[in-house]
């Protein structure tokens, strides 16, 4: 953590805008659509990361006694990669789960409404799995974490704007 929170946020936002679809975990490139939606996400990301950044200091301060208040993280179009600005959120949850071995969390994977429903169940599961893997790397016991994909079935917003879609592409920690 050598960068200030502010600089880190800026870098994250920039990286999202610039590298667009390059860091795909699913190995997919979506051509023009990827470029278009990532441009939109640049906007959404900046605001979100600033909010989460406030809590990130506490996230690394060892044991967590309360369930972290930020329980939703967002994803780029057609990607299941953890965006850097959400690592601190995941770290908080990892810390909480490690300090509470009895705690159990369901990772709900969601997608935006583009594409077919059953295929999106698969995409939502990929997102939730990538969070689970991140937590496992942090040392969280696998038996504490369960993955359920909702695909596009439970949208966070209505409408077909890129902003709405950005809100839909998420993993929710459900304790």
């Amino acid at each position: 953590m050598q960068f200030s929170t502010y600089a880190k946020t800026l870098a994250a936002a920039l990286s999202v805008v610039v590298i667009a679809g390059c860091s795909s975990g699913g190995g997919t490139q979506e051509g023009t659509d990827g470029g278009m939606s990532s441009g939109q996400q640049g906007t959404a990301t900046t605001g979100g990361a600033t909010g989460y950044g406030n809590g990130s200091g506490a996230g690394n301060a060892g044991a967590q006694n309360e369930i972290p208040s930020v329980r939703t993280i967002y994803f780029d179009f057609d990607h299941d990669t953890i965006r850097p600005e959400f690592e601190s959120v995941l770290n908080q949850h990892a810390a909480y789960l490690q300090s509470h071995p009895d705690a159990h969390v369901v990772l709900q994977g969601h997608t935006d409404p583009q594409g077919t429903r059953e295929y999106n169940l698969g995409l939502g599961e990929r997102r939730a799995n990538s969070v689970r893997q991140y937590l496992a790397v942090q040392g969280v016991n696998g038996s504490q974490v369960e993955v359920v994909s909702y695909g596009e079935e439970r949208p966070a917003s209505t409408g077909n704007s890129q902003e709405a879609y950005a809100q839909d592409r998420r993993v929710v920690f459900d304790y």
Binding site: T158, G159, N160, S161, E163, A164
Partner: peptide, 10 residues
């Protein structure tokens, strides 16, 4: 009433 202005425009 329901949604953002962009949506209506779209």
């Amino acid at each position: 009433e329901k949604a953002a202005k962009e949506k209506a425009a779209a």
